[in-house]
């Protein structure tokens, strides 16, 4: 698998207030490439997460694994300035995402937001006030990371793929590469591809060479229905399936002959077989393969590919109290 991780660190820190941004930009290219998260909490030290584990950011633009006297503290003013820059001084543009706890930068980096929720009398969140921390997740582009999986998908005539993995394991990065390769006909015949990018983090204008229809910001269930009615896709790519409505929409789409490549959160096989949504999703028989990815230290690396029937069997087996059943014999593909 080709692993050319483009340096997106500089664009991810562009929203941070000026003085701090200048210091972050002085980090070595090696650290920049290895960093996948920047945690900014009000009046707390700045922490970077990467394949080197967690590290404090110091005033001399270095990182250290232990807190030093010169480890930089993220001030209240810097937080306010960063949030305003992040929203391009236009909270109205991002408000729907802010109440869901994130803002996506135009380069595709997702910034998680923590603060105090303001709720309506009906219990709906109508605003987030007193924002206290920002978590910048650096979007990565790994050209060619889907090639192996794409070959498997095409060679075995798979109907649909469900990609599972822990946060940072490269699910979205894989989807981005799939969208590019499938829609541009680079490694296979061109397929009519629709990408449903609810959080606007799969496709970035500047860094995407695919030729597909992109539905940005739509709720997934609506986007799936709309795509089938109007765009006649052969394949739909979408991120993070979680709700019943989304599962129902996928089930309806698969019955209309559309193939899917979608992702779900699951840290490991145990979580994969214990999450009710995944069980419900597999019970629709929309997906015939489940791909489990490694972790944030090995982004986009396939840990195992399972037949969805085997995963369902394991779910039923565990429910009926038969634990520890070895399904390794049923594994279809082992990336290692």
């Amino acid at each position: 698998m080709k692993k050319i991780i483009k340096d997106n660190f500089d664009s991810a820190v562009s929203c941070i207030s000026t003085d701090l941004r200048k210091k972050l930009l002085l980090l070595s290219p090696e650290i920049k490439n290895k960093t996948y998260e920047i945690r900014l909490r009000e009046n707390r030290p700045i922490i970077l997460f990467g394949s080197y584990s967690a590290a404090f950011f110091n005033s001399d633009s270095s990182i250290s694994f232990n807190k030093r006297s010169d480890s930089l503290i993220f001030s209240e003013e810097e937080l306010s300035d960063t949030f305003n820059r992040l929203c391009s001084y236009s909270v109205h543009t991002h408000h729907a995402n802010i109440i869901n706890g994130f803002v996506t930068m135009k380069e595709g980096h997702r910034v998680g937001i923590a603060g105090t929720a303001v709720c309506s009398p009906e219990g709906e969140i109508i605003n987030i006030k007193n924002i206290s921390s920002l978590n910048i997740r650096i979007a990565r582009s790994v050209p060619g990371c889907c090639e192996e999986l794409l070959k498997y998908f095409l060679k075995e005539s798979r109907k649909s793929l469900l990609i599972a993995g822990p946060p940072g394991s490269g699910k979205t990065t894989l989807l981005r590469d799939f969208a590019e390769k499938i829609s541009s006909g680079e490694l296979c015949k061109i397929m009519k591809t629709t990408v449903i990018d609810e959080r606007e983090e799969i496709i970035q204008k500047n860094d995407f060479n695919g030729n597909c229809d992109v539905l940005k910001g739509y709720p997934k269930e609506y986007a799936i229905t709309s795509a089938i009615k109007t765009l006649s896709p052969e394949i739909i790519i979408c991120d993070e399936i979680a709700t019943e409505k989304e599962i129902s929409a996928i089930s309806r789409a698969v019955n209309s002959g559309v193939r899917f490549i979608a992702t779900v959160h699951a840290s490991d096989f145990d979580e994969l077989v214990s999450r009710p949504q995944i069980e419900r999703l597999l019970e629709t028989f929309s997906f015939d393969s489940v791909v489990l990815l490694e972790n944030a230290l090995n982004p986009c690396k396939i840990k195992q590919i399972y037949e969805s029937g085997d995963v369902l069997d394991e779910i039923y087996r565990r429910r009926s109290g038969i634990y520890g059943a070895d399904i390794c014999g049923d594994l279809h593909f082992n990336a290692s």
Binding site: C87, S90, V91, H92, H95
Partner: peptide, 10 residues
């Protein structure tokens, strides 16, 4: 005021 809050408040 511009851009500082959600659409209705603005």
């Amino acid at each position: 005021i511009l851009g500082s809050s959600n659409m209705q408040t603005q």
